[in-house]
Amino acid sequence: MIRVVLRLVLAAFYGFAGVMHVLRPEPFLSIMPEMVPYPEAIVFWTGVAEIAGAMALVQPFDIRLRRAAGIGLALYALCVWPANINHFAMDMAREDGGLGLPYHVPRMLAQPVLIVWALWAGEVRIPHRKDARAG
C-alpha cells in the first residue's frame, strides 16, 4: 500500500513539473546550460516526458509500462542534474548569493533520492551480483 501511495505522490510531482515545463518554460530556460542546443524544444519535450512518465507510472494494468516509466523517470532525473548544477553555480555566483545553500544543497541531494524513488515506485528490479551467479 505504501508503494502505491508514494507512486501517486511521485507521479503528482512529475505531472505538475511537466505541466509547468510546458505552460511556464521561462524558469527552466533560465537554468539551462548554454551548451545545450534548442533549449525551448528541450524544455517542452522534457515536460511532455514528465507527464507521460507520470501517467504510465500510475496506470494499474501493465507492470511493464510502470517499470518503463520508473526507468524513464529515473533517467530523466539523472539527465536534468546538470541543469540543476548549473543553476546552483549561477545562483551562488550572484552578488546577493541567490537562493543560497539552504535551497541548493537539499535540491542536489534530492536528485539521487528521486532516481531511487522512481525505480522503486516503478517496481524495477535491479539484479544483484549474487543473482547473476545463481543463474
Rank of each mutant, 00 (worst) to 15 (best):
V58N: 05
G53A: 05
Y14P: 03
P60I: 05
P106M: 12
V5S: 04
E50C: 14
D62I: 06
C79N: 14
M32H: 10
L109C: 08
V48R: 06
S30K: 13
L8V: 06
N84T: 12
I63P: 07
V116S: 10
L109Q: 05
A93Q: 08
A77D: 11
D91L: 01
W120F: 07
I42G: 03
A77Y: 07
A41C: 07
A121T: 00
D62E: 08
A49P: 08
M32W: 05
D91R: 00
P102C: 08
R64S: 09
Q59A: 05
W81K: 02
N86D: 08
E26D: 13
V36A: 05
V43Q: 06
G98F: 01
W45C: 11
L75F: 15
I126A: 03
A17L: 14
L101M: 11
Y76C: 01
I85G: 02
M92H: 04
R94Q: 12
P39D: 07
A17M: 12
R7M: 08
L23D: 03
S30R: 14
G98E: 03
L119D: 02
P127V: 02
P127F: 04
G72P: 03
Y38F: 14
A74N: 07
L10F: 09
L23I: 11
M90R: 14
M32V: 12
Y103P: 12
I126E: 01
I126K: 01
L29P: 01
G15Q: 14
G15V: 13
M35S: 13
A118G: 08
A77P: 04
E26Q: 15
A118E: 09
A69M: 00
P106L: 09
Y38T: 07
F44Y: 15
P106W: 09
I2G: 06
P102W: 04
V80R: 12
P127T: 02
G98M: 01
E95F: 06
K130R: 15
R125M: 04
A83C: 06
G97D: 09
A41P: 02
Y14C: 15
W120H: 02
A54I: 04
A11W: 01
A134K: 13
A118D: 05
Q111C: 10
R129C: 09
M1C: 07
A17F: 06
L65R: 06
H104Q: 08
P39I: 05
L65I: 15
P37I: 08
P102D: 07
P37Q: 09
P25C: 02
A17R: 01
I2C: 03
F16I: 15
V36M: 13
I31N: 08
M35W: 15
A12R: 06
L99M: 10
V22D: 04
A41S: 13
